[in-house]
């Protein structure tokens, strides 16, 4: 069964992203939103961890990037920027949603 994992905390403050990455299996998806978007910025320790996860799809919520002044060109390669509508379709396409709150 495929899972949409959601992470809403900065990887620099909390361990939710690390825990999520340890659990996300190939074929699953990870959406970073709210303060979780800081994990999507390129050139950080988190970038390397994301790059190391083969077969996992990564997404970041555009409105949360924008709200925090993070421009799209700062987002690491391989992470797709999505809107709320796509958040909804990711939740629908996967078999369940697991929130790493």
């Amino acid at each position: 069964m495929s899972t949409l994992h959601t992470v809403n905390k900065s990887p620099f403050e909390k361990s939710s992203m690390d825990s999520c990455l340890a659990y996300a299996k190939a074929g699953s998806s990870v959406l970073m939103y709210e303060d979780g978007i800081y994990g999507a910025i390129k050139g950080t320790g988190c970038t390397q961890k994301i790059a190391a996860k083969d077969g996992v799809n990564f997404y970041v919520l555009g409105p949360d990037l924008k709200a925090r002044g993070v421009s799209e060109d700062k987002v690491a390669d391989g992470i797709e920027i999505v809107d709320y509508a796509k958040f909804v379709s990711l939740a629908a396409e996967n078999d369940k949603v697991q929130a790493w709150v």
Partner: peptide, 18 residues
């Protein structure tokens, strides 16, 4: 183990988080 837990989670229908 973490790997076993990941398998168990994968098998669930609904995840409640608090």
């Amino acid at each position: 183990s973490r790997a076993e837990m990941a398998d168990i989670m994968e098998d669930q229908d609904v995840m409640f988080s608090f």
